[in-house]
């Protein structure tokens, strides 16, 4: 009897441990961010001042916006490789059309263009049932080709700097409007996806498509919406960046793609679908930008930044899959019986 009780206690202890691990996994991005921030504040010269912090926030606004849509696509269990070229498309369209249409109409056109690419992606994935990796790889090539074809490979710029000045001029003491706009849009989508009935559908579709369908969700529509959102936020992010520097280059999105994919995964969104959220993705983007910035303060070049972010990503992926591997090992075992076996059944 006493043994039984003890083993029951052992089980409870095990469950507590599991819960704790789960919690740790959920909050891991905050822990990583805190570690990076503290290390950089201690060791990087000129890191901890308002000017530099604002710089970090400015640096994250492009990728945080792009990460919104990418996170939703990943929650649905899909992949979108076209975010980089979508971002460039948004930036190029805004700058190319500004002299003809003015800022706001060209921004609208850019957002429509991004959504259109996303809609094509979503339609091909949901209705034609082609793997999202292939579809988005194809549209990435197509959009990139279109951009180079229309711009002839050269950078575009406009002479109107009024909007750029307004976007970069600090408000409320230190925050520029670009950062405020980005953060508020990210938070809006975070609430929409995480806390509304409509948004929770994305998690259901990603977690188990069949169950979602049986529960009465229009799964195809959800998939298409996820891709449209991804195209929209990518184009919007690119457009905002282009508006704040009044110019755009056709190779804008290449480095961004890598940062966004890394950040979303480090932020705890799994590629199997059904988990993750937009806020943690944003924190992960800030973490990576902090890492880059801090390393730059230490005098390290671009190569060290890639190396470091790659190491962080690799460590996170490795840790995650090792935890799953351990879980798989004891899957279906009853810990109390195992404990009894270990204790004395073999004697």
């Amino acid at each position: 009897m006493l043994d039984r009780l003890e083993s029951l206690e052992g089980m409870m202890h095990n469950m507590d441990k599991k819960k704790l691990l789960n919690k740790l996994d959920y909050y891991r991005i905050y822990i990583i961010f805190a570690i990076v921030f503290i290390l950089m504040s201690l060791f990087a010269p000129n890191f901890l001042n308002v000017f530099n912090i604002v710089n970090i926030l400015k640096g994250m606004s492009l990728n945080a916006m792009v990460a919104v849509g990418f996170t939703v696509v990943m929650i649905c269990g899909q992949l979108d490789l076209s975010i980089g070229s979508n971002l460039t498309l948004g930036a190029m369209v805004v700058i190319a059309l500004q002299p003809i249409l003015g800022w706001w109409p060209s921004l609208a056109v850019a957002m429509i263009a991004g959504s259109f690419v996303g809609a094509v992606n979503g339609f091909l994935v949901a209705k034609a049932k082609i793997h999202s990796f292939i579809v988005t790889l194809g549209t990435m090539t197509i959009v990139q080709g279109l951009i180079f074809l229309l711009s002839k490979g050269s950078a575009l710029s406009v002479n109107d700097f009024t909007l750029a000045d307004w976007l970069e001029m600090p408000k409320f003491g230190f925050l520029p409007p670009r950062v405020i706009i980005t953060v508020s849009i990210v938070l809006m989508f975070f609430v929409l996806i995480k806390f509304t009935k409509f948004g929770k559908g994305f998690y259901l579709v990603g977690g188990n498509k069949e169950t979602a369908w049986l529960a009465g969700l229009n799964t195809d529509l959800y998939l298409i919406l996820a891709f449209i959102l991804s195209g929209l936020t990518a184009a919007l992010g690119g457009a905002l960046l282009a508006m704040s520097i009044s110019s755009a280059v056709p190779t804008l999105g290449t480095s961004s793609q890598m940062v966004v994919i890394a950040a979303v995964i480090i932020g705890g969104t799994s590629m199997a679908g059904g988990t993750g959220d937009i806020f943690r993705s944003m924190i992960a983007v800030i973490m990576l930008v902090t890492l880059f910035n801090g390393l730059m303060c230490c005098g390290a070049g671009y190569e060290v930044q890639i190396f470091a972010s790659g190491l962080v990503l690799a460590a996170v992926v490795l840790g995650e899959s090792y935890a799953l591997y351990q879980q798989d090992k004891v899957k279906g075992q009853r810990p109390n019986l195992m404990a009894e076996l270990k204790k004395g059944a073999l004697q």
């Binding site: 890639i306 972010s309 790659g310 992926v317």
Partner: peptide, 21 residues
């Protein structure tokens, strides 16, 4: 360990690329 092949090999590519540079 059954890591997702795309994500893992992508991170290996970052690390390798950064290391070479």
């Amino acid at each position: 360990l059954k890591a997702n092949p795309i994500i893992w090999t992508l991170s290996v590519a970052f690390v390798g690329n950064g290391f070479m540079r």
